[in-house]
Computed example of a mutant assay.
Amino acid sequence: MILAADVGGTNARLAIYSADGEKLIRRETYPSHTHKSFEEVARAFLAAGGEKPLAACVGVAGPVVDGRVEATNVPWILDERIIAQALDIPKVSLINDLVALSLGALHARPEDLVLLHGSSLPRTQGANLAVIAAGTGLGEASLVWDGQKHVVCATEGGHVDFAPRNELEIDLLRYLIKRVKRRVSYERILSGPGIGNVYDFFREAKAIPEDEVVEAAIASSADRNATITKLGISGESTAAARALKLFISLYGAEAGNLVLKSLAVGGVFVMGKIAVNLSAQLGPKGFVDSFLDKGRMRQLLEKTPIALVPDSTIGLSGSARHAAASLSGLRT
Rank of each mutant, 00 (worst) to 15 (best):
S120R: 13
L121Q: 03
R123I: 05
T124G: 03
Q125S: 14
Q125E: 15
G126Y: 14
G126K: 10
A127E: 14
A127D: 15
A127M: 12
A127T: 07
N128D: 15
L129R: 03
L129K: 05
A130L: 04
A130Q: 09
A130P: 10
V131I: 14
A133F: 03
T136S: 15
G137H: 05
G137P: 08
L138C: 11
L138F: 09
G139S: 06
G139V: 04
E140F: 07
S142L: 08
V144C: 09
D146T: 14
D146L: 12
G147H: 09
Q148K: 14
H150G: 10
V151W: 11
V151P: 13
V152S: 11
A154K: 05
A154M: 05
T155D: 08
E156I: 12
G157M: 07
V160P: 01
D161E: 11
D161P: 03
D161Q: 14
F162Y: 15
A163Q: 13
A163M: 07
P164V: 11
R165H: 10
E167T: 08
E167D: 09
E167L: 10
L168K: 03
L168F: 00
E169K: 06
I170R: 08
I170T: 06
I170S: 05
D171Q: 14
D171C: 11
L172F: 02
L172E: 01
L172G: 01
R174F: 07
Y175M: 02
Y175G: 01
L176I: 03
L176D: 01
I177S: 02
I177K: 08
K178I: 02
K178L: 11
K178F: 04
K178H: 14
R179C: 04
R179P: 00
V180K: 09
K181E: 08
K181H: 09
K181R: 13
R183L: 02
V184H: 01
S185Y: 02
